[in-house]
Simulated assay, not measured.
Amino acid sequence: MTTVFPWEGVVPADEIALHERRQGPVVRPLAVGSSPAIIVVDMSREFVDSAYPTGDSEAGGPAVAATLPLLAAARAAGVPIVYTRQIMQETTVAGIVGPRRYEIDGAAPLTDPSLPDGSEVADAFEARPDELQLMKTKPSGFHATPLLEFLTFHRIDTLIVTGMVTSGCVRATALDGYMNNFNVVLPHDATADWSPFQHATSLFDLHMKYADVTDVATVVEYLGSLPR
C-alpha cells in the first residue's frame, strides 16, 4: 500500500526535491523497534468538539475516528497507551500555567459552564483504567510529566504519536521523543490541526528531520506483527 502524504499539493515539488537532496528520500521504510507505545496527545473534548471554543469537530472528529483502530490494535497486542491532557484554566500559582495564546476574534475564549469537563479524554476512546493519563502545562507531553519514566520502565523504543494539534503539542511531543532517542512514528490521519496548511507542513518537516509519517493502516499492520 502506498501512503498518500498529507503535504502533497501543499509543499511545492521543488521544495520536496531540495529536502530529498539534503535529507534523503521521502519514501522510505519505517524506523521502528519491537516495543512501541501509543501517545494520544490532547485529544480531549475541548479540542475535538466545536461545542468548546478551542475545539474543532471538523478536524478532530476524523482524527478521533482514525485513532480508534490504533487503540484496538494496541490493546490486542498489549502495547501501552498514554493520553496527555492540557491544563487549560488559568491558575493563581504563578509560573505553573503560562500565558495563554488562545484568542478568537481578539478575545480569550469562554467555555459554556454547562458543558462537561473539556479536559477529559474524548469519550469515543473509552479510556481504560490501566491506560495512563498525564496532565501537562506546556505543549510537550514530556515536559514536567513522568512520561519518560513510564516509557523507560516499559522499555519502550518506539513512539506512535497521534493527536492535536499537529503544529503544536503533537510536534512538541514528537520532537522530545526524538530528543530522547525514541523512534517516532506519526500516523497522519490520526493527527489534526485547525490549520490544514500547518498540519501538512508540520508533518513534512517532522518526516524529513525527526520522525516517520505514515498512515493508520500501516501502523495497525505493524502493531499486528508484534508478538502477543
Rank of each mutant, 00 (worst) to 15 (best):
V41K: 09
V82A: 13
E221Q: 14
V93R: 11
A59G: 09
V93M: 07
Y210I: 00
P187H: 02
T145W: 02
F47R: 04
E46W: 00
A94C: 11
Q23D: 11
S50C: 08
T214C: 02
A51P: 07
E8Y: 08
A65T: 01
M88T: 03
A211K: 00
P113N: 01
T54V: 15
L134I: 06
R22D: 11
P139C: 15
V165H: 12
V10L: 08
L18M: 07
G224M: 10
V185P: 13
V170A: 13
R85H: 08
T214I: 00
R155Y: 04
F5N: 03
D157M: 11
L134E: 06
G118M: 03
E20Q: 15
I104E: 05
Q133R: 15
A174V: 08
A144W: 02
L68Y: 02
M135F: 07
P196E: 08
V4F: 04
T2A: 05
A94F: 13
L148P: 00
P69A: 03
A94I: 12
L132A: 14
A211D: 03
V219E: 07
R85I: 01
A63F: 02
S119M: 11
T2Y: 06
V185K: 13
P80W: 09
V10S: 06
L223T: 02
K136T: 07
P62R: 03
V40R: 09
E149S: 09
F5W: 12
R101P: 00
R28K: 11
S195D: 15
T214M: 01
L132N: 01
F153M: 08
F47M: 12
G95L: 06
H207L: 00
F197P: 00
A65N: 02
T54Y: 02
V26C: 01
L147I: 00
T145K: 07
M135Y: 06
M208E: 04
A37C: 13
T214H: 04
H188I: 01
S202F: 04
I87S: 13
S114H: 06
D112C: 07
P6K: 03
V185M: 13
P129K: 01
F142S: 09
D14I: 03
D123V: 00
L223I: 01
E15H: 13
D112M: 04
P36E: 13
